[in-house]
């Protein structure tokens, strides 16, 4: 496995995507190494989603430097081909319904990045992505339009789309929010499979970053934890470190211990 960090942020100011004058999280210093599983916790509106978009190079940072696989993708005259190449190595699953493309059905949504980057047909994609679709239990939904899917299944389709190109790094925005217990269990199994490596997911362990409004559901699965709270960024450490810091206001709120 390469020593180059998957994500490297130095003194980054995470700013609002529509209003760059508004700082959401200041002085983010963060290194995500290959094979790690980070959980970024924060309350709603703390800037977690924008942090993930900044880490993926989609939203420009207000200051500091962001490197993805050692490459800067924001600022200057970047070659779109190089940026595209870097982005193919990461997958991002957006919050809510995953921002699926409503004009495409489930299969076309998942197959789009695979077909685009390989200049392949949907028939080729059906063959190549079969094991992934089976793993995601999406076989029965392939002809459906995203608008007809519930949130849980839409998010799973978004996961399939993000995994279709075989990324090394997977960013998940609130993967467990609003899901019933059956789906939460499936996601926990998936996170475990992805961090250890699974044949349907390319075989190698994925580097994972999951943003979450609650710490408890990911306390066992996650290995490193960070906190975005009150506009500040804090690295918490391992599960044990989080539990030993439960007296901290931010940690207590995110563990749900206030109740």
């Amino acid at each position: 496995m390469s020593d180059i960090p998957s994500i490297e942020m130095q003194d980054v100011r995470v700013v609002h995507s529509r209003n760059p004058g508004v700082t959401l999280i200041d002085e983010v210093g963060w290194v995500v190494r290959p094979g790690e599983f980070w959980v970024v916790a924060g309350l709603q509106g703390s800037g977690k989603s924008v942090l993930l978009e900044t880490a993926a190079g989609l939203t420009p940072q207000g200051g500091g430097s962001v490197r993805i696989f050692g490459e800067e993708v924001q600022g200057g005259q970047r070659d779109p081909e190089e940026v595209s190449e870097v982005r193919r190595r990461l997958g991002l699953v957006f919050d809510g319904n995953g921002r699926l493309f409503p004009s495409l059905n489930v299969f076309e949504n998942i197959a789009l990045p695979w077909c685009y980057h390989r200049n392949a047909s949907l028939a080729d994609a059906a063959e190549a992505l079969g094991p992934l679709l089976e793993y995601l239990h999406l076989d029965r939904l392939l002809d459906q339009r995203p608008g007809r899917l519930g949130r849980a299944w839409a998010r799973r389709v978004a996961l399939g789309r993000a995994l279709a190109t075989g990324p090394e790094l997977l960013l998940l925005d609130n993967p467990l929010s609003g899901l019933d217990m059956a789906h939460v269990r499936w996601w926990r199994t998936f996170l475990s499979d992805a961090s250890r490596g699974h044949a349907a997911l390319g075989g190698r362990p994925l580097t994972l970053v999951a943003a979450s409004e609650e710490l408890r559901p990911l306390l066992v699965a996650g290995r490193q934890f960070a906190l975005a709270h009150g506009g500040r960024w804090r690295l918490l450490g391992s599960t044990e470190d989080v539990l030993s810091a439960r007296e901290d206001d931010g940690v207590r709120e995110l563990l749900g211990d206030n109740d």
């Binding site: 595209s84 982005r87 409503p102 993000a162």
Partner: peptide
């Protein structure tokens, strides 16, 4: 408005 364009960019699609 719904962020689908960013979703395309995230997939490396221009």
């Amino acid at each position: 408005a719904l962020g689908e364009v960013e979703a395309l960019e995230a997939l490396g699609i221009d």
